[in-house]
Write a protein that binds this DNA or RNA. Structure first.
Length: 280
DNA sequence: CGCCAGGGTCTCG
DNA sequence: CGAGACCATGGC
Protein backbone atom coordinates (compact mmCIF):
# COMPACT_ATOMS: atom_id res chain seq x y z
CA UNK A 1 0.00 0.00 0.00
CA UNK A 2 1.54 3.30 -1.06
CA UNK A 3 2.15 5.92 1.59
CA UNK A 4 -0.64 8.46 1.35
CA UNK A 5 1.71 11.28 2.29
CA UNK A 6 3.99 10.87 -0.69
CA UNK A 7 1.46 12.53 -2.99
CA UNK A 8 2.36 15.95 -4.30
CA UNK A 9 -0.83 17.45 -2.84
CA UNK A 10 -0.14 16.35 0.74
CA UNK A 11 0.42 18.69 3.67
CA UNK A 12 1.64 18.23 7.23
CA UNK A 13 -0.02 21.08 9.12
CA UNK A 14 1.87 20.61 12.35
CA UNK A 15 5.23 20.72 10.58
CA UNK A 16 4.12 23.62 8.37
CA UNK A 17 2.77 25.77 11.20
CA UNK A 18 5.27 24.82 13.92
CA UNK A 19 8.56 24.91 12.01
CA UNK A 20 9.48 28.53 12.69
CA UNK A 21 8.24 30.24 9.54
CA UNK A 22 5.00 31.61 11.05
CA UNK A 23 4.24 32.31 14.70
CA UNK A 24 0.57 32.80 15.49
CA UNK A 25 -1.30 29.61 14.50
CA UNK A 26 -2.66 27.44 17.29
CA UNK A 27 -3.97 23.91 17.50
CA UNK A 28 -7.46 23.42 18.88
CA UNK A 29 -8.75 20.62 21.05
CA UNK A 30 -10.44 18.93 18.07
CA UNK A 31 -7.13 18.78 16.20
CA UNK A 32 -7.88 21.61 13.77
CA UNK A 33 -5.63 24.66 13.41
CA UNK A 34 -6.79 28.27 13.80
CA UNK A 35 -5.02 31.33 12.47
CA UNK A 36 -5.31 34.53 10.52
CA UNK A 37 -4.49 35.07 6.87
CA UNK A 38 -4.01 38.80 6.82
CA UNK A 39 -7.22 40.06 8.41
CA UNK A 40 -9.19 36.92 7.62
CA UNK A 41 -10.09 34.20 10.10
CA UNK A 42 -9.07 30.72 8.95
CA UNK A 43 -9.55 27.23 10.39
CA UNK A 44 -8.06 24.16 8.71
CA UNK A 45 -7.46 20.51 9.41
CA UNK A 46 -5.89 17.50 7.76
CA UNK A 47 -7.83 14.64 6.23
CA UNK A 48 -5.48 11.86 5.18
CA UNK A 49 -2.69 14.42 4.61
CA UNK A 50 -5.01 16.64 2.55
CA UNK A 51 -5.95 20.19 3.45
CA UNK A 52 -9.54 20.73 4.55
CA UNK A 53 -10.73 24.34 4.89
CA UNK A 54 -13.26 24.74 7.71
CA UNK A 55 -13.22 28.54 7.82
CA UNK A 56 -12.06 31.06 5.23
CA UNK A 57 -12.27 31.43 1.47
CA UNK A 58 -10.90 28.13 0.06
CA UNK A 59 -8.99 29.68 -2.85
CA UNK A 60 -7.26 32.15 -0.57
CA UNK A 61 -6.47 29.51 2.04
CA UNK A 62 -5.07 27.09 -0.53
CA UNK A 63 -2.87 29.86 -1.90
CA UNK A 64 -1.62 30.77 1.60
CA UNK A 65 -0.63 27.16 2.24
CA UNK A 66 1.00 26.97 -1.22
CA UNK A 67 -0.93 23.86 -2.18
CA UNK A 68 0.20 24.51 -5.76
CA UNK A 69 3.84 23.76 -4.86
CA UNK A 70 4.80 20.46 -6.49
CA UNK A 71 6.39 18.75 -3.50
CA UNK A 72 7.25 15.63 -5.48
CA UNK A 73 9.22 17.68 -7.97
CA UNK A 74 10.85 19.72 -5.22
CA UNK A 75 11.92 16.59 -3.32
CA UNK A 76 13.35 15.11 -6.51
CA UNK A 77 15.79 18.03 -6.63
CA UNK A 78 17.07 17.55 -3.06
CA UNK A 79 20.58 16.15 -2.65
CA UNK A 80 20.50 12.45 -1.80
CA UNK A 81 22.84 12.45 1.18
CA UNK A 82 21.90 10.86 4.49
CA UNK A 83 21.32 14.11 6.37
CA UNK A 84 18.94 15.47 3.75
CA UNK A 85 17.04 12.20 3.39
CA UNK A 86 16.52 12.00 7.16
CA UNK A 87 15.20 15.57 7.18
CA UNK A 88 12.89 14.80 4.26
CA UNK A 89 11.54 11.71 5.96
CA UNK A 90 10.83 13.76 9.09
CA UNK A 91 9.31 16.84 7.38
CA UNK A 92 7.44 15.39 4.40
CA UNK A 93 4.40 17.58 3.72
CA UNK A 94 5.93 20.74 5.23
CA UNK A 95 5.07 23.61 2.88
CA UNK A 96 6.61 27.07 2.57
CA UNK A 97 3.52 29.23 3.05
CA UNK A 98 2.86 32.59 1.40
CA UNK A 99 2.88 35.10 4.25
CA UNK A 100 1.92 38.75 3.95
CA UNK A 101 5.26 40.45 3.32
CA UNK A 102 5.00 43.11 6.03
CA UNK A 103 3.99 40.63 8.73
CA UNK A 104 6.89 38.40 7.74
CA UNK A 105 9.41 41.25 7.61
CA UNK A 106 8.37 42.70 10.97
CA UNK A 107 8.29 39.31 12.68
CA UNK A 108 11.79 38.39 11.56
CA UNK A 109 13.19 41.76 12.62
CA UNK A 110 12.12 40.73 16.12
CA UNK A 111 13.62 37.25 15.72
CA UNK A 112 17.32 38.02 16.16
CA UNK A 113 18.92 36.11 19.03
CA UNK A 114 15.54 34.77 20.12
CA UNK A 115 14.14 31.28 20.42
CA UNK A 116 11.08 30.35 18.36
CA UNK A 117 8.92 30.21 21.50
CA UNK A 118 9.79 33.77 22.37
CA UNK A 119 9.29 35.06 18.84
CA UNK A 120 5.76 33.71 19.13
CA UNK A 121 5.37 35.46 22.48
CA UNK A 122 6.49 38.83 21.08
CA UNK A 123 4.19 38.38 18.07
CA UNK A 124 1.24 37.72 20.37
CA UNK A 125 2.04 40.76 22.50
CA UNK A 126 2.35 43.03 19.45
CA UNK A 127 -0.93 41.75 18.03
CA UNK A 128 -2.70 42.22 21.37
CA UNK A 129 -1.40 45.75 21.85
CA UNK A 130 -1.29 47.15 18.30
CA UNK A 131 -3.34 44.77 16.13
CA UNK A 132 -7.04 44.80 15.31
CA UNK A 133 -9.90 42.56 16.36
CA UNK A 134 -11.11 40.03 13.79
CA UNK A 135 -14.71 38.80 13.65
CA UNK A 136 -15.27 35.24 14.84
CA UNK A 137 -12.07 34.81 16.84
CA UNK A 138 -10.06 36.31 19.67
CA UNK A 139 -6.94 36.24 17.48
CA UNK A 140 -5.85 39.72 16.47
CA UNK A 141 -4.35 40.83 13.17
CA UNK A 142 -0.66 41.73 12.89
CA UNK A 143 -0.14 45.48 13.45
CA UNK A 144 0.05 47.64 10.33
CA UNK A 145 3.22 49.61 9.52
CA UNK A 146 1.36 52.75 10.60
CA UNK A 147 0.42 51.26 13.95
CA UNK A 148 4.02 50.33 14.75
CA UNK A 149 5.46 53.52 13.26
CA UNK A 150 3.38 55.64 15.62
CA UNK A 151 4.16 53.50 18.68
CA UNK A 152 6.84 54.68 21.07
CA UNK A 153 10.00 52.67 21.57
CA UNK A 154 9.04 52.07 25.19
CA UNK A 155 5.66 50.70 24.16
CA UNK A 156 7.39 48.25 21.83
CA UNK A 157 9.88 47.29 24.53
CA UNK A 158 6.92 46.53 26.77
CA UNK A 159 6.08 43.75 24.28
CA UNK A 160 9.39 42.08 25.15
CA UNK A 161 11.35 43.33 22.13
CA UNK A 162 14.40 44.64 23.98
CA UNK A 163 16.93 46.31 21.68
CA UNK A 164 14.91 45.16 18.65
CA UNK A 165 12.24 47.79 19.38
CA UNK A 166 14.21 50.59 17.77
CA UNK A 167 14.76 48.62 14.56
CA UNK A 168 11.15 47.53 14.24
CA UNK A 169 9.94 51.08 14.77
CA UNK A 170 12.42 52.56 12.27
CA UNK A 171 11.54 50.01 9.58
CA UNK A 172 7.82 50.49 10.21
CA UNK A 173 8.30 54.22 9.69
CA UNK A 174 10.07 53.68 6.37
CA UNK A 175 7.32 51.38 5.14
CA UNK A 176 4.52 53.58 6.45
CA UNK A 177 5.98 56.69 4.81
CA UNK A 178 6.46 54.94 1.49
CA UNK A 179 10.23 55.38 1.60
CA UNK A 180 10.32 51.59 1.38
CA UNK A 181 7.66 49.94 -0.80
CA UNK A 182 7.32 46.19 -0.30
CA UNK A 183 4.97 45.79 -3.28
CA UNK A 184 7.45 47.42 -5.64
CA UNK A 185 10.14 45.12 -4.27
CA UNK A 186 8.20 42.15 -5.66
CA UNK A 187 9.39 43.11 -9.13
CA UNK A 188 13.07 42.88 -8.18
CA UNK A 189 15.26 39.90 -8.94
CA UNK A 190 16.72 37.93 -6.03
CA UNK A 191 19.94 39.87 -5.61
CA UNK A 192 18.35 43.31 -5.81
CA UNK A 193 15.54 42.27 -3.48
CA UNK A 194 18.07 41.07 -0.90
CA UNK A 195 19.97 44.35 -1.18
CA UNK A 196 16.77 46.39 -0.81
CA UNK A 197 15.70 44.44 2.28
CA UNK A 198 19.18 44.72 3.83
CA UNK A 199 18.89 48.52 3.73
CA UNK A 200 16.09 48.38 6.30
CA UNK A 201 17.05 48.77 9.99
CA UNK A 202 17.38 45.40 11.71
CA UNK A 203 17.61 43.46 8.45
CA UNK A 204 20.84 41.68 7.56
CA UNK A 205 21.53 38.75 5.25
CA UNK A 206 19.85 36.13 7.39
CA UNK A 207 16.63 38.05 8.03
CA UNK A 208 16.50 39.17 4.39
CA UNK A 209 16.70 35.56 3.25
CA UNK A 210 13.90 34.57 5.62
CA UNK A 211 11.69 37.37 4.29
CA UNK A 212 12.50 36.40 0.71
CA UNK A 213 11.69 32.76 1.39
CA UNK A 214 8.56 33.18 3.52
CA UNK A 215 7.16 36.47 2.22
CA UNK A 216 8.32 36.82 -1.39
CA UNK A 217 8.11 33.25 -2.75
CA UNK A 218 11.86 33.14 -3.34
CA UNK A 219 12.24 29.41 -2.83
CA UNK A 220 15.99 29.45 -3.50
CA UNK A 221 16.73 31.81 -0.59
CA UNK A 222 18.80 30.01 2.04
CA UNK A 223 18.83 31.60 5.52
CA UNK A 224 21.90 30.65 7.56
CA UNK A 225 21.23 30.84 11.30
CA UNK A 226 23.02 29.20 14.21
CA UNK A 227 21.26 25.86 13.65
CA UNK A 228 21.97 25.72 9.92
CA UNK A 229 25.56 26.82 10.46
CA UNK A 230 25.95 23.94 12.94
CA UNK A 231 24.45 21.46 10.48
CA UNK A 232 26.62 22.72 7.65
CA UNK A 233 29.73 22.47 9.79
CA UNK A 234 28.81 18.99 11.01
CA UNK A 235 27.57 17.39 7.80
CA UNK A 236 28.52 19.53 4.83
CA UNK A 237 31.56 21.53 5.73
CA UNK A 238 33.82 19.22 7.69
CA UNK A 239 37.50 20.12 7.70
CA UNK A 240 37.19 23.05 5.36
CA UNK A 241 37.90 26.68 6.13
CA UNK A 242 34.92 28.69 7.24
CA UNK A 243 33.53 30.56 4.25
CA UNK A 244 32.00 34.00 4.35
CA UNK A 245 28.18 34.06 4.50
CA UNK A 246 27.93 35.14 0.86
CA UNK A 247 30.35 32.45 -0.34
CA UNK A 248 28.54 29.89 1.77
CA UNK A 249 25.20 30.81 0.23
CA UNK A 250 26.60 30.54 -3.29
CA UNK A 251 27.97 27.05 -2.68
CA UNK A 252 24.79 26.00 -0.94
CA UNK A 253 22.71 27.25 -3.86
CA UNK A 254 24.78 25.07 -6.16
CA UNK A 255 24.35 22.05 -3.89
CA UNK A 256 20.69 22.44 -3.00
CA UNK A 257 19.35 23.87 -6.24
CA UNK A 258 16.42 26.17 -7.10
CA UNK A 259 14.40 25.01 -4.08
CA UNK A 260 17.27 25.40 -1.62
CA UNK A 261 14.98 27.24 0.77
CA UNK A 262 12.77 24.16 1.09
CA UNK A 263 15.81 22.01 1.81
CA UNK A 264 17.05 24.53 4.35
CA UNK A 265 13.74 24.57 6.22
CA UNK A 266 13.60 20.78 6.31
CA UNK A 267 17.13 20.60 7.73
CA UNK A 268 16.30 23.32 10.28
CA UNK A 269 13.03 21.80 11.47
CA UNK A 270 14.43 18.28 11.67
CA UNK A 271 17.49 19.33 13.65
CA UNK A 272 15.59 21.58 16.03
CA UNK A 273 12.83 19.04 16.66
CA UNK A 274 15.11 16.11 17.36
CA UNK A 275 17.41 18.25 19.50
CA UNK A 276 14.46 19.45 21.58
CA UNK A 277 13.25 15.91 22.07
CA UNK A 278 16.63 14.86 23.34
CA UNK A 279 16.39 17.40 26.13
CA UNK A 280 13.28 15.86 27.70
C1' DC B 1 24.15 30.72 37.75
C1' DG B 2 25.81 30.29 32.97
C1' DC B 3 24.69 29.48 28.45
C1' DC B 4 22.19 29.98 24.27
C1' DA B 5 18.67 31.71 21.18
C1' DG B 6 16.24 31.53 13.27
C1' DG B 7 21.59 38.45 14.26
C1' DG B 8 22.53 43.30 13.18
C1' DT B 9 25.59 46.99 13.58
C1' DC B 10 29.55 49.47 14.76
C1' DT B 11 34.48 49.72 15.63
C1' DC B 12 39.12 48.57 15.04
C1' DG B 13 43.07 46.37 12.99
C1' DC C 1 37.72 42.66 4.29
C1' DG C 2 37.32 39.98 9.16
C1' DA C 3 37.03 39.51 14.03
C1' DG C 4 34.97 41.25 18.40
C1' DA C 5 31.94 43.94 21.40
C1' DC C 6 27.55 45.12 22.37
C1' DC C 7 22.83 44.98 22.36
C1' DA C 8 17.74 42.89 25.99
C1' DT C 9 15.21 39.11 27.31
C1' DG C 10 13.63 34.54 28.53
C1' DG C 11 14.08 29.39 28.82
C1' DC C 12 16.50 25.82 30.56
Amino acid sequence: MPRSDTRSDCIDLRATLDCGQVFHWRKRADGSWEGLIGEGHAVVREDNSRLVVLQGEPGLVNRYFAMDHDLGGIYAGFPKDETMLAALDFCRGLRMIRQPAWECLATFITSSMKQVAHIRQMSTALRARFGSAVAGTDLRSYPTPDALASASEDELRACGLGYRAKNLRATAQRVASGAADLETMRELDDENLRDALCQLPGVGRKVANCVMLFGFEKLSAFPVDTWIARIMKRHYWRGRAKPTPAALEKKLAARFGPHAGYAQQYLFHHARSTERRRHR
